[in-house]
């Protein structure tokens, strides 16, 4: 019998304590960010889709189309083509297609590039109802940026 009352009282008390906690939070400021009215800065290491790094002087991509990233990509979503040009050492990249629909953002392409020609972008506002919109031409993108 005493156990019954003890449980009744402690139980009721626990219920009121619960109300107290949620009641307190009711008056505290909200913690959410009002996306899309506000935006977060991405951290420096944030992995968006990859992008080509331009050469500081010429603005052309640093990439020499060695194909290492294409080989190292687990999802096979990179397609690089290059050609030899006169007066330029190595090859010049003519086509760099990233199929972002299958990219797993693992970072192996960035790691395998020995020429420092790849990095992650900070783009995360990517939404589209069409699959084709995620097949990026990175050379195009680089041009647009500069």
């Amino acid at each position: 019998m005493s156990g019954y009352f003890k449980e009744l009282i402690s139980g009721t008390k626990s219920l009121f304590i619960g109300l107290g906690i949620t009641g307190k939070y009711f008056f505290e400021p909200v913690v959410t960010l009002q996306y899309p009215h506000e935006h977060l800065e991405m951290t420096p290491r944030y992995r968006g889709h990859i992008e080509l790094i331009p050469n500081e002087e010429t603005g052309e991509p640093k990439c020499i189309a060695c194909g290492m990233c294409q080989k190292g990509c687990p999802s096979g979503c990179i397609e690089v083509k290059g050609e030899k040009r006169e007066g330029v050492k190595g090859k010049v990249v003519t086509k760099y297609i990233l199929n972002f629909t299958t990219c797993s953002l693992c970072g192996q392409c960035v790691e395998s590039c020995k020429f420092g020609a790849l990095r992650f972008s900070k783009e995360y506002n990517l939404a589209s109802p069409r699959k084709e919109d995620f097949i990026f031409d990175l050379i195009e993108k680089l041009k647009e940026k500069s």
């Binding site: 939070y25 009711f26 400021p29 909200v30 009002q34």
Partner: peptide, 13 residues
């Protein structure tokens, strides 16, 4: 709204 503020978000806005 009440649920929102209890959970520290805004609710419909």
């Amino acid at each position: 709204k009440g649920a929102g503020h209890i959970q520290r978000r805004i609710g419909p806005k």
